[in-house]
Write a protein that binds this DNA or RNA. Structure first.
Lengths: 341, 341
DNA sequence: GTGAAAGCGCTAACAC
DNA sequence: GTGTTAGCGCTTTCAC
């Protein structure tokens, strides 16, 4: 456990001053080439690395982004994260990751803990509890303290910040529209996320598509619930009624559950039943039949979020620019759970 | 953008010295109760939070763990990560996450970048390239610099550090043994990770089980390759030969590909073909038929890793203790892709 | 009971 | 071309 090299040590060993070493290593014009060479060589030998914390303290910034994710086991968030990571790394930022586990309290606590110089800004998607209880004060107080936030996916108008979302309403509309176009007459909507902004928007898109095609909304076809057995039972009942020929599932659980139960109940997919869901692409392809999905471009959401945040962090104090909301276009990925046109 | 409160400011506004404020806020005996009350109240009002970077600089530690993950999109790593996060958070550590993308260069660069005071220690699983090229020098030099490392899953004997692994050999042995027990005569081994330590161990387990049951290893039943179409073709050929009644897939890609191709080729699973794979539990359950897997207890791997690292960080300098390797037991999760006994 | 001062490692304005 | 110094925010020893 040899101590890490510092400017001070190097200066002493070389018989020069600390500032000379500092300047030499940053290739300052003030220092003679000979001295620079000598110092650089010695520093390399000692494997000198400037101490980040000292630099951060000096410059009053951490070059670190705090990323708050509701649940890393959800592959959507993992993908967004990978997009954030890539951009951040490329632009010289580190990432501190925290997981809110969908809890408001935890989210609050984590953000407050990190908002003490540890991070320069946050990228986050709200915890479910935060969104359902509409408790957004901590965001605003953090923003007021001078730490910018970028929200993605689960957002609210009540926080003034940059935002990155997908066109949930439109994509749901398109998906439903597609089901209608391939001949579905009885299209069910399945959702376990109707408490989230994105869930509501997807429902809206479904409703809009039916409206436009003058199809009446049928309560028996709308299944909203939680990820539990009760919900599964309701899907089963619906399927057994045979009174359904299309399913639009706005979340991964619903989509995969519907698919599995349909197969178990002897449905021919896509001949008798067409399914479109919001789900992870990789695994959707692995299912048999593969599941048609709405691609959400998760990595791109992450990239945009990181770009927005870093651009804001690098902006001059004076040139405050307006908050942007970036909408990422989604696409319908037709696979084998839907009939071809 | 109001500036964040500092000790200095508070001291000035209250007409006392910086050290008085510092002591008061840490509830020092030296300060009178009246002063403490006054200062604490004022600090709370100003929403004072001690600056982390200053503290870190002072104490020469960051209270931060660097986690290097080869690929966050792999749900195994995402789960391990969630285990690390939980323990770290509970014990007051932050996590800086970096993704090596299976690249040696990137891994090296990331670790060197973070080994400058940004983190107190590392938890990592080697990049694929690191493991195949056997380039471990950067680990050793980082350890020598005084930053401890905990390796998990993909490890090597050539690095002296704490390690956390699952009993890959035994679990592969058990899985193969199980296939034999339920009557499989022609058990294929599928692997796209034979370049990784874990891949090799799982192969060993397979071999050992066959040995013990006096079944000869058949080359035609051993498919080792990469995640590409060529590999898929070879699986297809094997399946079409009908000369196989059991599949042991040591990675997720192989397992799901085998399942899908088998279904497409009209196999009745598990009547004609039994499949066991290493794969994500959640999604394995969503497949039809659900996939029998080896549960790897990923979150536990993360928890143990974090515990090992933090214990070492908190240990007194003098009481150096030996490096441990913790082996987590796995279990076979029988689902619908294998016959019941 | 309170304050002054040093120091963590670094940078930069200002001497010399 | 090199060195001195102050200061980032905090803690802690030592004076008073």
């Amino acid at each position: 456990m040899k101590a890490k090299a510092t400017l001070k040590q190097i200066a002493k060993e070389l018989g020069v001053s600390v500032s000379t070493v500092s300047k030499a290593l940053s290739d300052s014009q003030e220092i003679s080439q000979a001295t620079k060479d000598k110092i650089k060589e010695f520093a390399a030998l000692k494997n000198y690395k400037p101490n980040l914390m000292a630099k951060n303290l000096k410059y009053q910034k951490s070059n670190t982004i705090g990323v708050i994710i509701p649940n890393i086991l959800n592959s959507f968030f993992a993908k967004v994260f990978s997009g954030i990571e890539e951009v951040a790394r490329k632009r010289g930022y580190n990432i501190v990751t925290a997981i809110s586990n969908e809890s408001l309290e935890r989210e609050k606590q984590l953000m407050e803990m990190l908002n003490n110089g540890a991070v320069d800004g946050f990228i986050l998607s709200m915890a479910e509890e935060t969104q359902t209880t509409k408790n957004f004060q901590h965001y605003n107080s953090i923003i007021k303290s001078g730490t910018p936030i970028v929200m993605f996916d689960r957002i609210t108008d009540l926080v003034k910040s940059d935002k990155v979302i997908v066109d949930d309403l439109d994509s749901a509309f398109d998906a439903t529209q597609h089901l209608i176009k391939i001949g579905c007459k009885k299209i069910a909507l399945l959702s376990t996320i109707d408490n989230l902004s994105v869930g509501k928007l997807r429902f809206e898109g479904y409703r809009k598509a039916l409206d436009l095609n003058q199809v009446a909304l049928e309560n028996s076809l709308i299944l909203i619930g939680d990820e539990d057995e009760n919900f599964d039972e309701r899907i089963k009942t619906l399927l057994q009624s045979k009174d359904v020929d299309g399913i639009f599932a706005v979340d991964e659980y619903s989509a995969t559950k519907a698919m599995k139960l349909a197969l178990q109940n002897g449905y021919q997919i896509p001949d008798e039943l067409n399914i479109i869901g919001f789900a992870d692409g990789t695994w959707s392809r692995r299912l048999t039949p593969s599941l048609s999905t709405v691609s959400q471009h998760a990595p791109e959401i992450g990239e945009k979020s990181a770009t927005l945040l870093i651009d804001r962090l690098n902006a001059k104090e004076d040139e405050t620019f307006d908050y942007k909301t970036i909408v990422i276009k989604t696409e319908l990925r037709q696979r084998d759970s839907t009939r071809k046109l």
